[in-house]
Design a protein around this nucleic acid. Structure first.
Length: 473
RNA sequence: GUCCCCUUCGUCUAGCGGCCUAGGACAUCGCCCUCUCACGGCGAAAACACGGGUUCGAUUCCCGUAGGGGACGCCA
């Protein structure tokens, strides 16, 4: 039997971090079974039953976010809204079979029921007043809703692949609305019908849906359909332990992209947030597909930890192809340098990326450090760098300029030897010579190996930058 | 309020009755490497929420308590 999973976001906002993890787990589970089992498919369904809450750009954000993360879905994304007629048909079928009924309650009546329940400290639910009432009593001018005639005794049990066996007293569940007064389906009906029609075998979603699983189970039973396997994964909380709400870093996935995180870092982080494979931390996409299983998902909610994500991001940056990083960094440089990239910038970036990426944890950080290869002369030195080229620093630079001019083979070994020779002759530590050089050539006190920088910058640029500084003083 | 779920270092977690003087990772703090900063290496500090059981033996199983979270819409 082939495994079919689905990611079913509602297009109300953006694809946030929790949704991304849910999508990732669904994708991995399907892929795992496609490659190591008897087949697997990952589907995408937009839950836009309520047109009021449908936003086209939100749908685009979901597509973009999933694509960026590399979570491709099989076939076309399905819009739940387009299936409304099918949903209504099922509701009517249930009605005909006597498993559902018309309810003519007004919103006001429902509100009273809720208030009363609250006052008595009971769970707020519909009292079933139209369940067995004669349809002839129907008031005129009220469009009835269709409610499920849910079982009133016994209990409903679900076997959750993450949470284990979970049961609830049927007395705790009321007769839910299947079809609204205007004939449109509710979420509860739509998910069941769609999951069934799409042949979804495993429903993997946030455990805020755990309670819904009971009600959906009742609908499946009423219809006589097979119930899919459920796997309710714990929610992700903010760093302060509170729910990841709009106020708590529930940023869209695009915000993480803008902050300079790589998709593979985010996926690796999200994978480990709530799932584990022994002590493994760095897990490639292929390993994830091979190892992923529902049993290894933790049951407690996890807090989002930006530090760990950042650390992982640094790892993936170091591992990235230099050319990819150059492509990612150039637009950022164009922005920070206001469009004035030095003409040799790109080729220097390619040569220098290996040394640069070793030191960055995010793309903006990488771009900032890469400025040293893209800036046009004369450089503006920051405060600390400026201090280094004053006084004795300046004297060393003066001498160093001559030493560098004499270097024949312009490569970092030869350059380092020249500077070391100078330091020896001046009886100073290498750092006393290297730091002023770094300051003058990069405008800052931190950079990759200064000899590597000198080599990449090239003789003309180096002597030019040195002269800029020496002339200024 | 009612129902459901959860509970190992600050954080993510390993652990599926004895291998645990509880392991790893991030973060923190030392030291080393060193032209700066990173990387890397070595080391330190840091946890089984509490109380009862079950058992020869509980971090692991059961029951309470406390704490946290979620759900209670003609939203999804």
């Amino acid at each position: 039997m082939t495994v079919v999973t689905r990611f079913a976001p509602s297009p109300t906002g953006l694809l946030h971090i929790g949704g991304a993890r849910t999508a990732l787990y669904n994708w991995l589970f399907a892929k795992h079974h496609a490659e190591y089992g008897t087949g697997g498919r990952f589907l995408l369904r937009i839950e836009d039953t309520d047109r009021k809450r449908h936003a086209e750009d939100a749908v685009e954000a979901i597509y973009d976010g999933l694509s960026w993360l590399g979570l491709n879905w099989d076939g076309e994304a399905i819009s739940q809204f387009t299936r409304a007629e099918r949903h209504a048909e099922i509701a009517r079928q249930l009605l005909d079979e006597g498993k559902a009924y018309h309810c003519y309650c007004t919103p006001e009546e429902l509100n009273e029921m809720r208030e009363a329940a609250r006052a008595e400290g009971r769970k707020m639910m519909y009292d079933g007043r139209w369940r067995d009432r004669d349809p002839a009593d129907a008031p005129a001018g009220v469009d009835p809703v269709i409610r499920l005639k849910a079982p009133q005794d016994g209990e409903t049990i679900i076997q959750d692949l993450v949470q284990g066996e979970v049961k609830v007293d049927n007395g705790q569940l009321d007769d839910m609305i299947l079809l609204r007064g205007d004939g449109t389906p509710t979420y509860m009906l739509a998910v069941v019908v769609d999951d069934h029609d799409m042949e979804v075998s495993h429903v993997i979603r946030g455990d805020d849906h755990l309670n819904n699983a009971f009600r959906q189970t009742q609908i499946y039973r009423g219809l006589g359909w097979d119930i899919p396997a459920f796997a309710h994964i714990p929610l992700i909380h903010g760093a302060d332990g509170a729910k990841m709400g709009k106020r708590h870093g529930a940023l869209g996935i695009d915000a993480y992209r803008d902050q300079g995180f790589l998709p593979e870092a985010i996926c690796n982080y999200l994978l480990r947030l709530g799932w584990s494979h022994g002590d493994d931390e760095i897990i490639s996409r292929d390993e994830a597909v091979e190892w992923f299983s529902l049993e290894a998902i933790g049951r407690g909610a996890a807090r989002f930890d930006a530090d760990k994500l950042t650390n992982l991001n640094g790892h993936y940056i170091r591992q990235s192809e230099d050319s990819r990083l150059v492509d990612l960094v150039i637009p950022l440089l164009a922005l920070s340098l206001k469009g004035t990239l030095d003409e040799g910038a790109e080729s220097r970036l390619i040569k220098g990326m290996a040394g640069l990426k070793e030191r960055a944890k995010t793309l903006p950080e990488l771009a900032e450090s890469a400025e040293i290869y893209a800036m046009t002369r004369p450089l503006r030195l920051n405060e600390k760098a400026d201090q280094l080229v004053q006084g004795v620093g300046r004297d060393h630079l003066d001498s160093l300029r001559g030493r560098l001019t004499d270097v024949g083979d312009w490569n970092h070994e030869a350059l380092e030897n020249a500077v070391r020779a100078y330091a020896d002759s001046a009886d100073i530590k290498l750092g006393k010579a290297a730091q002023p050089l770094r300051a003058a050539l990069t405008g800052r006190t931190v950079s990759p190996s200064i000899f590597e920088v000198i080599e990449i910058l090239g003789r003309d640029e180096v002597l030019g930058r040195l002269d800029d500084v020496l002339k200024d003083l």
